[in-house]
Design a protein around this nucleic acid. Structure first.
Lengths: 184, 184
DNA sequence: TGTAGCATGTAAGCCGTTACATGATTGA
DNA sequence: TCAATCATGTAACGGCTTACATGCTACA
């Protein structure tokens, strides 16, 4: 548990950074997971609960987060806050490490590649289902976007959410065009 | 090496399927890797050479591919062809396993989320670089698209390539809009 | 009384990467 | 003759997931 943080570590640290200036005692692993499900899920990953906890341990070992233990009930609850060192590390990471080109694991496109093995009707069904899944996703992200509002401190998360919405719209338009123009 | 094939296994098997009706003795691992770099790279992954070889071993163990060994020189060269069983397995996979929703690992969007830690100028630079990287990628995919032509047997790969081009265009438009409207 | 949500972890294992190792062939 | 390309693998290991294990709290 002494290794270099990964991109996912910094992603979680970044989520904790939004609570830096509040008075709260921090987020539990469980709350952090929920926050990741509302943000990271759409353009990075939603780490498994178990990974959230192991990342928090790693960040704590590096003193990038403070742990506040709550022995309220029979069980210990831990709240995590980003530290000054954590914030510095995050800023350095942002400044020094250029982002990689986005990676897409698009199993719908992958299957379309092999369309000659499945036939046009199967591909049409697949794309129609995908278009509908895109709408579902879009609705989920719209809800998230709504909760962000227009406050200055959430300006960047709002931009990212708007990016995601535009991406879903573009993707849907492409799929519908494939359906009507190429598989019609 | 007896395990279930993964999506990447089927992706590689699918690439081999395009040579099913030719008279060639098949593709070497090396050639398959190059083919993956021209197709899968844009919307799935470009597996490492070592993984290409281990996937081919797995497919061979399942009798989804035939191996033709060539002891021409001092070294053995292996050529792989999809078998009838492999083709059946691939068709079943296409028919029975619904595709997952695409997964995006978008480190540019991830960093934009934390824009308040890096500042507007840094985010502008990052997005401008990304827009330029998108053009480079698009040019690479345009070359691939050109090599596919309009032949009927490559109709689906051409569709997928066109999808990719449209995606890059949409992504670039969104980035430029963020730059001018939100970070101007 | 029981179930859903809150809360925290360990263990096993797979997918995929990087680093390492080796050697033939072709062309500048 | 030297470098690039063709060609094939092994070993180590990291990131992440799934399955398993535990227990509290609130509420219907």
């Amino acid at each position: 548990m002494r290794q270099e943080p990964t991109t996912t570590s910094y992603a979680l640290l970044g989520l904790l950074a939004f609570d830096e200036s509040t008075e709260s005692v921090g987020l539990t692993g469980y709350e952090l997971k929920r926050r990741a499900d509302n943000t990271l899920r759409f353009y990075w990953v939603s780490p498994a609960m178990s990974q959230v906890y192991s990342e928090l341990n790693r960040l704590a070992a590096l003193d990038y987060v403070d742990v506040h233990e709550d022995h309220g009930g029979g069980r210990t609850t831990r709240h995590y806050r980003i530290t000054a060192a954590g914030r510095r590390a995050l800023e350095e990471w942002l400044a020094d490490r250029p982002p990689e080109f986005p990676i897409l694991k698009h199993s719908v496109a992958l299957r379309l590649l092999m369309g000659h093995l499945a036939g046009d009707p199967a591909m049409r069904d697949m794309l129609a289902t995908y278009a509908s899944d895109l709408e579902t996703r879009r609705a989920e992200l719209t809800a998230v976007r709504g909760s962000l509002g227009d406050a200055e401190d959430l300006r960047f998360p709002a931009m990212v959410a708007d990016w995601g919405l535009a991406y879903y719209d573009a993707e849907r338009a492409i799929v519908l065009e494939l359906l009507t123009e190429r598989l019609g």
